[in-house]
Write a protein that binds this DNA or RNA. Structure first.
Length: 471
RNA sequence: GGCCGGGUCGUCUAACGGCCAGGACAUCAGGUUUUCAGCCUGAAGAUGAGGGUUCGAUUCCCUCCCCGGCUACCA
C-alpha cells in the first residue's frame, strides 16, 4: 500500500487531515508500505514537496509546444466565459479558439511573455489541447470511450503559485512511481482525456496505467452523490473516524465511534458496486483481497443503505473475541463507578453477545446485571404487575432461597412447580419476575439471568420491586 | 446548455441471447409453547417506455424518458 498525499491546493489545506487519513487506514487494518512517514523508493510522498519535479515536466511540455503560458486574471476568465455563454458558443472553454482572444503565448510575442515572467507577473501553464481530433481510451469498467478534442478545455497544469493541478501532478507521479492501475471515482472520467493527452505528450503511452472509474456512492434517499449533509440528516456516520471541522468546530461522529467494526465497514463498502459473482456476502479483508477483481464492478451508482451496514456489524460482532467485549463492558462499568466481578462480566458477555448490533449496546442492555433497577417501566408494570403476580413472586422468592443449586435448569423446574402449586400459568409470573429483576419486559433468557444474579440477589430484587411498586 | 457515464424487487445485486428473472438487507407472517433480540421457515416484491433484430431479449440495435458526473489557477 502506497500513500501519496495530494495536497496541491494550499487554499484548502486542513491541519490534521494527513494524520487523520493515516489513522483511518490503521483502524481499517490497511498497512502502509510507502508514504510520507514510511518513506520509500519514490520520496517525497507529499505533492507539495515535489514542486520542482512538476515544474521541470511542465517546462518540458512547454518546450515541446504541448503547453503554454497564460496571464489572464480571474476577472478576464470570467468575462470570457460569460461572453461565450451569451453568444451561445459551441464550447465555453479556454480552447484553441477562445485562447486567441486571451493573454497567452499564442497572442503575446515571445519577448512579451518573457518579460512578463521576468517582471514577476503571475502566470499559469496551460495544456495545449489540439483544435481537432479525438482522444480514445479504454476504461476497465466503462469500456471504450472517445471524446472530441474540441469539447476539451486547455486545463491549467501549473497554477500561479507554482504548484501543479491534479492533472499534471497525478500523471507525473503515477508515471514516476510506477503506478499500474488508476482506480478512482467516476467524477474523474471527464478528465481522463486530458490525462491521456498528457501521457501522449510525455511519450509515456507505453507505460500508461490502466484506468478504472468506479460508480459513485449515492445518498440513501433521492438523487445525487452521498454527502456529509445527507449523513447528518439521516443520522448515520460518513467519516470513518470522528472528525472535527476546523472552522465550525462541529464534530462529526465516525463509524468507529458509532460502534462499527472495521471488518463490517470494509465488507459493506466492498459490496457497494462489486460482487464476487456468487451468493457469498461475508468476506474478511483477506478474502476480499483474494476474491476482488475489477471486472466484476458494476457501472451504476449505489445508494448507501445503512441498514445493510448494521447487518454486517451484527454479524461481525459475533466474531469479536469474548475477552475484548468483556474488557469493553468492564471499562464502561468502571467509568460509571459500578463495581463488578470479572466472572460475572464474562457470563454476561456470553449471554448478551448474540443479541447486540453494536458494542456500546452491551453496557446499556447489561447494566441491570450490575445495578438493581431504580425505575420500573411504567407501561410494563401497568400491563403485567398485579396482586396475583406479586403473591406468586413472593412464593418463588422463598422457594429460590431454599434451593441448594441455583442453576438455569433447576430454577426452571422449581418455578414450574410453584406455578402448578399455585395453579397459575407460567406466563403470568414470568413477566412480573422480569420486571422485578430487570425493570423492563425485554431482555435475555430469564432463567439464565437469574442464574447469573444468584438466589440472594434475585430475592433482594423481588423484595425491592414489591416495596417500590406495591401490589 | 454542452460533453461523458448510467437505468433489474424499497435497497445492494446475479443471470455464455434460452430453466418459474436468483441471492442478500429491509418489510410482513409463522415457529422457537417467558418477553425482546437472535435464529429457523415462509410470503410479498423488479428488468424505465416504445420500436426493432431473433424461434427466443434483462442481455444486441434505434428513439424517447429519467438519473448522475463534469463543464475552476478544487481534488
Amino acid at each position: 500500500m502506497i500513500l501519496r498525499i495530494e495536497d496541491t491546493d494550499q487554499t484548502r489545506y486542513v491541519p490534521g487531515a494527513e494524520e487523520y487519513i493515516i489513522n483511518t487506514l490503521e483502524w481499517a487494518g490497511i498497512e502502509l508500505d510507502e508514504g510520507p512517514k514510511e518513506g520509500g523508493e519514490f520520496v517525497p510522498y507529499r505533492q507539495s514537496e515535489r514542486k520542482d519535479i512538476y515544474q521541470q515536466y511542465a517546462q518540458q511540455l512547454i518546450s515541446n509546444g504541448h503547453a503554454y503560458y497564460a496571464f489572464d486574471s480571474a476577472e478576464e476568465l470570467e468575462a470570457m466565459r460569460t461572453r461565450l455563454r451569451e453568444e451561445k458558443a459551441f464550447s465555453q472553454h479556454y480552447n484553441a479558439e477562445s485562447r486567441q482572444q486571451m493573454k497567452n503565448s499564442f497572442t503575446l510575442s515571445e519577448e512579451e511573455v518573457k518579460s512578463r515572467i521576468e517582471s514577476g507577473q503571475p502566470y499559469v501553464v496551460r495544456l495545449n489541447v489540439p483544435a481537432e481530433g479525438q482522444v480514445a481510451f479504454t476504461d476497465i469498467i466503462r469500456g471504450d470511450v472517445s471524446v472530441d478534442c474540441n469539447t476539451l478545455d486547455d486545463k491549467v497544469l501549473l497554477k500561479s503559485d507554482g504548484l501543479p493541478t491534479y492533472h499534471l501532478a497525478n500523471v507525473v507521479d503515477d508515471h514516476l512511481m510506477q503506478i499500474t492501475h488508476v482506480i478512482r471515482g467516476e467524477e474523474w472520467l471527464p478528465s481522463l482525456p486530458i490525462h491521456v493527452l498528457l501521457y501522449r505528450y510525455f511519450d509515456w503511452q507505453a507505460e500508461m496505467p490502466s484506468f478504472a472509474h468506479l460508480p459513485l456512492i449515492l445518498k440513501p434517499e433521492g438523487n445525487g452523490k452521498l454527502s456529509k449533509r445527507d449523513a447528518d440528516k439521516s443520522g448515520f456516520p460518513i467519516f470513518p473516524l470522528s472528525w472535527e471541522d476546523v472552522e465550525t468546530k462541529e464534530v462529526s461522529e465516525g463509524f468507529k465511534e458509532a460502534g462499527y467494526l472495521p471488518e463490517a465497514l470494509l465488507n459493506f463498502l466492498a459490496f457497494l458496486g462489486w460482487n464476487p459473482g456468487d451468493d457469498r456476502e461475508l468476506f474478511n479483508k483477506e478474502e476480499l483481497i483474494a476474491a476482488f477483481s475489477l471486472d466484476r464492478i458494476g457501472k451504476g451508482g449505489a445508494k448507501f443503505d445503512i441498514a445493510k451496514a448494521q447487518w454486517y456489524n451484527q454479524h461481525y460482532i459475533k466474531h469479536v473475541p469474548n475477552q475484548d467485549l468483556e474488557q469493553i463492558l468492564a471499562n464502561a462499568l468502571s467509568e460509571e463507578g459500578i463495581t463488578f466481578d470479572d466472572n460475572k462480566v464474562a457470563e454476561v458477555v456470553g449471554l448478551m453477545k448474540e443479541r447486540i448490533t453494536f458494542q456500546h449496546e452491551l453496557v446499556n442492555q447489561a447494566r441491570f446485571f450490575f445495578v438493581n433497577p431504580e425505575v420500573y417501566d411504567e407501561r410494563a408494570v401497568q400491563k403485567k404487575w398485579n396482586e396475583q403476580a406479586v403473591s406468586a413472586l413472593e412464593a418463588v422468592r422463598d422457594a429460590y432461597l431454599e434451593m441448594t443449586t441455583f442453576d438455569q435448569e433447576s430454577i426452571k423446574v422449581r418455578t414450574n412447580e410453584i406455578c402448578t402449586e399455585l395453579d397459575i400459568p407460567l406466563g403470568k409470573i414470568m413477566p412480573a419476575l422480569r420486571i422485578a429483576i430487570t425493570g423492563s419486559l425485554s431482555g435475555p433468557d430469564l432463567m439464565s439471568t437469574l442464574q447469573i444474579l444468584g438466589a440472594n440477589e434475585v430475592s433482594e430484587r423481588i423484595v425491592k420491586a414489591i416495596s417500590t411498586i406495591g401490589n
